[in-house]
Nucleic acid binder design. Structure first.
Lengths: 182, 182
DNA sequence: AATTATCTATCTATCAGTAGATAGATAAAG
DNA sequence: CTTTATCTATCTACTGATAGATAGATAATT
C-alpha cells in the first residue's frame, strides 16, 4: 500500500507551489517556502523536481489539464454558445472565489516575458488550449464580441481588476456583459 | 545648469526599474540590476530610493501620472464616447508596441496580492484613476459593454494574451470590438 | 575674500539572509 | 542489492540593506 507515495508527494508539492505562484508569481516561490509549507526539506523538493523550471512546467501543465477537463467538451452537447460561455465564466469565477486569488494562467501570462523558456512555452500552450476551446464553443455565434481572444482576455483582465481593486464583482460584471454580447 | 541632476538620476533609475518590472515583475528587479544597467553602484540606487518599497511606489506613481496625463480630459472636448475609448485603446497599444512589453499596470495588478502594502496601495490607486477616467469618458453611452470595469479589464487581458501567445494582434482586435459595443 | 559648515551624490566594503542546486548518508521496501 | 524517498550538510551566487569615506557644490559666517 501507499504505492503512489511519489505521486501523492509530487501533487502536494505542486499544490503548494501553485498557491505561492498565484499569490506573487514565479519568482515569489522558493524550494524552501514549499518545503516548510508541507513539512519536508528543500532537497526533497529537488528530488521530485530537480530544477525550478521543472517545477514551473509541472505546475502549469497540471493546471492546464485540470482546467480544460473541468470545462468539458465545447461541442458534443446541444448547448447554445451562451451556455458554453457561461460555463467558461463560472470556471474563472470559481478559481477566484475558492482561493481568493487570481488564476494561475493570469499571473504566469502576465509574467510571461520574464519566465524561463520552458515555462513560457507551457504557458503559451495553456492559452492556446483555452482559446481553442472557446473558439469551438462559439461556433455559430454572431454576437459583436464573439471572439475567443476577446472573451478570454476580458475574463482574465477582469479577474486581475477584481483582486487589484479589491472589488470582487468586477469579474461577475464582465461575465454578465460578455454573455449579453455573444 | 544641470541643477536637477538629482531628478535626472532618479528618473534614469525609475526608467530602468520600470523596464525590468515590466519584463518580469516586481521580484525580477534588483538594486544591482538597475545599478549595472545605468552604470552606477547599487548603494547609489539606495541613496535615491532607500527601500525597495520606495522604489516600487515611485515607479507606479510616476507611471500613473504619466498615463492619465497622456489620456487628456475625459470630458471637456466635444467627443463621442467612441472617440474617447479609442484614445484609451491607443494608449494601451502604444505601451505594448513601443517597448514590446506588457504595461506596468498589467503586471503589477496581476502580482498585486504578493506586493508590499505600500506598492499594492499605489497600484490600487492607479486602477481607481483609470477606471474613473473611463467612467467619465463613457458618459451618455448605452452600449452593451459600456462599463469602465469591463473595458479596462478587456484591454489589460488582451494585452497579456498578446505577449503570452505572441500574437500582437489580440489587443488590436479587442480594441476594435470594444469600440463597436460602446 | 576666505573660511567654515552643510548638503548632494557617489563610492568602497561589508553584512546577514536567502536563492537554487548538489553530494552523500540513511532508511525502508520489494 | 537496487530503487525510492527522504535527510544532513554544504556550495556559490545573489538579495536588500547599511556604514563610512570621499569629492564637489552650495550656503553661511566671519
Amino acid at each position: 500500500m501507499m504505492k503512489n507515495q511519489n505521486s501523492d508527494r509530487s501533487d502536494t508539492i505542486l499544490d503548494s507551489a501553485e498557491k505561492f505562484i498565484r499569490k506573487g508569481g514565479f519568482n515569489a516561490v522558493s524550494f524552501r517556502d514549499i518545503a516548510d509549507d508541507i513539512g519536508i526539506k528543500s532537497s526533497s523538493v529537488h528530488y521530485h523536481f530537480p530544477k525550478k523550471t521543472d517545477l514551473g512546467k509541472a505546475v502549469i501543465d497540471r493546471y492546464a489539464k485540470r482546467f480544460l477537463e473541468s470545462l468539458g467538451s465545447p461541442e458534443e452537447k446541444k448547448e447554445t454558445p451562451q451556455t458554453r460561455i457561461n460555463r467558461l465564466g463560472k470556471a474563472y469565477l470559481a478559481a477566484l472565489e475558492e482561493d481568493d486569488a487570481i488564476c494561475l494562467g493570469c499571473i504566469l501570462g502576465a509574467e510571461s516575458a520574464g519566465l524561463p523558456g520552458d515555462v513560457q512555452e507551457a504557458v503559451g500552450s495553456f492559452f492556446d488550449g483555452v482559446l481553442r476551446w472557446t473558439s469551438s464553443a462559439l461556433a455559430g455565434s454572431k454576437g459583436p464580441s464573439a471572439s475567443a481572444t476577446h472573451i478570454i482576455g476580458a475574463l482574465q483582465g477582469a479577474m486581475v481588476l477584481s483582486v487589484a481593486t479589491k472589488k470582487p464583482d468586477a469579474l461577475k460584471e464582465t461575465i454578465r456583459r460578455l454573455q449579453m454580447s455573444v
